[in-house]
C-alpha cells in the first residue's frame, strides 16, 4: 500500500516536472500571467479607485464578489465547527 502511494506520488511528480518545461522562466516580466489583466490593474487601479495598495484595490473592488463569498466561506466554517463540536449545557 505504501509502495503504491510512493509510486503514485513519483509518477505525479514526474508528470508535473515534465510540464514545467513549458512554463515561463522565473521573474520574466513578459510571461503570460504578467501580460494580461494585471497590466490594467497596475496602470489603472489607482486612477479608478484612489487606493495605492493595488492588492487591496483588486481584493475589495474588482474582485469584491470573490471576497464577499470568501467571508461567507469563513463564516460557514465557524458555524460548522460550532455545529460539530459544541454541546448543550447538560451533555
Amino acid at each position: 500500500m505504501k509502495s503504491l502511494a510512493l509510486l503514485a506520488t513519483l509518477v505525479t511528480g514526474a508528470l508535473l516536472l515534465y510540464g514545467t518545461a513549458d512554463f515561463a522562466a522565473w521573474g520574466d516580466p513578459q510571461s503570460p500571467p504578467n501580460r494580461n489583466i494585471s497590466v490594467h490593474y497596475v496602470e489603472q487601479a489607482v486612477k479608478e479607485t484612489h487606493v495605492p495598495n493595488i492588492v487591496t484595490a483588486v481584493l475589495g473592488d474588482y474582485r469584491g464578489y470573490d471576497t464577499m463569498f470568501e467571508l461567507v466561506v469563513i463564516y460557514s466554517a465557524g458555524m460548522a465547527v460550532m455545529g460539530i463540536l459544541r454541546r448543550r449545557e447538560d451533555q
Partner: peptide, 12 residues
C-alpha cells in the same frame, strides 16, 4: 471615485 476607496474601507 473617492467613494470606491471608502467603500473598500467599509467592506474591510
Amino acid at each position: 471615485i473617492s467613494w470606491r476607496s471608502h467603500g473598500i474601507f467599509l467592506v474591510e
